[in-house]
Computed example of a mutant assay.
Amino acid sequence: MSDDNKDTGSEEPREGGGTPERVVGTPSPAKGKALLPGEDEHSAPAGAGEELDEASAKRAERIVATFFLLAFAGSVAFIAYYIGWSGRNGGMHGIHRARESNLWLGGMMALSFLALAVGVTIWVRRLMTSRPIVQDRHEMRVDDATRESFAQDFMEGATDSGITKRPLLRRTLLLAAAPLGLAPLVLLRDLGPLPEKRLRHTFWGEAVKKAQSQGKKGVRLVVDGTNRPLRVSDFSSPGAMITVLPEGIEHDVPEEKVLTQTAKAVTILINVPAEQFKPAKGRENWHINGIVAYSKICTHVGCPAALYEQTTHHILCPCHQSTFDATDAAKVVFGPAARPLPQLPLAVEDGYIVATSDYHEPIGPSFWERG
């Protein structure tokens, strides 16, 4: 093939009389031809602008309305299960109810969206004509003529869709969409109620009051997992850390609230060398020769502050690296936490470590204090 042929876009016949080879850059030989037999580039698709058979349209209308009603029923079932049935046996968020609630909630919402989508699809395919719509391009400005043209096109589209002509479809569509609009509001329940004043008190306070009513100084600390009361002699090695709970929490709290109360009351007990311990003002008697107790719930977002560096005496939260100084009232030395870990007052009774009161400040994230 010569350079002249490339420049002019000509075609050179193949040897043996075959079909000429198309040169790159030349116009397509199919230009100006219709994709379907009997059509040219300006022709409308088959059936364009044809009036719908009213009997078939009525059947399609009833089918679409049925799917819209099915979507409505699915949405109502979703809301009803979420508000009503899921509240049985401890609520939908219990460990044993999670699978059931996910199955029902997911299935009802999927049914609602699927029925709505099928109904709209049948509406478009069976009840809307295929009349081509030509839209002229104008300058990017809005004037009276443009507004009038838009209004006219909008009304023509509404008329063509049949939404003004077929009130059954319009009403069932609105009926199906209404619960879907309410569903996100219902799901806000997952955020849970604000804790208000509930985080200002833990089971430590109730346990201490019960023990003091029996003539005791306070409630004994038990080791988390074994529920064994902790003696001072059992925790005499500096640098040690252990998780403790108030004695009796597994017996004095209703079964459905044990996990919640345990999560709030969980406490870390640390043995800091007495010569390095710097008690806060007014808390000089809250420790036992350097044995001090702090809430295990980080004051940033509530993760467990469960790591302890024996060399630096720093308590670390692994979630966002908030760091607290165990020797100095658990003050923040690094990270996003806004305030120290709450401290639990301690004393000794009959050789056992006891708590003499509840925490004197709210546990957990600082923003709850504004609730």
Rank of each mutant, 00 (worst) to 15 (best):
M1W: 11
D3N: 10
S10E: 11
E21A: 14
V24K: 12
K33G: 05
A34E: 15
L35H: 00
E41F: 13
D53H: 03
A60E: 01
A60L: 02
I63S: 11
T66F: 11
L70I: 07
A71W: 04
A73N: 01
V76F: 14
A77T: 05
A80G: 07
A98K: 06
R99N: 04
N102V: 05
L103Q: 00
L111W: 13
F113L: 15
L114F: 07
L116Y: 14
V118D: 05
W123S: 07
V124E: 08
R125M: 11
T129K: 12
I133V: 15
I133G: 04
V134E: 09
R141K: 15
A145Y: 04
A158C: 10
R170D: 00
L174T: 06
P179E: 10
L180A: 02
V186G: 00
L188F: 14
L188G: 02
D190C: 04
P195A: 12
E206S: 14
K209D: 15
S213Y: 09
K217N: 07
V232H: 08
F235G: 01
F235H: 05
F235V: 00
P238L: 14
A240F: 04
I242F: 03
G248H: 12
E250N: 14
P254Y: 10
E255H: 08
K257P: 01
K264T: 01
T267K: 08
T267R: 10
A274K: 13
F277H: 12
H287P: 00
N289H: 15
G290N: 09
V301E: 12
C303N: 03
C319Y: 07
G335H: 12
G335D: 09
P342T: 00
L346T: 03
L346S: 07
A347T: 00
D350G: 02
H360I: 01
R370C: 02
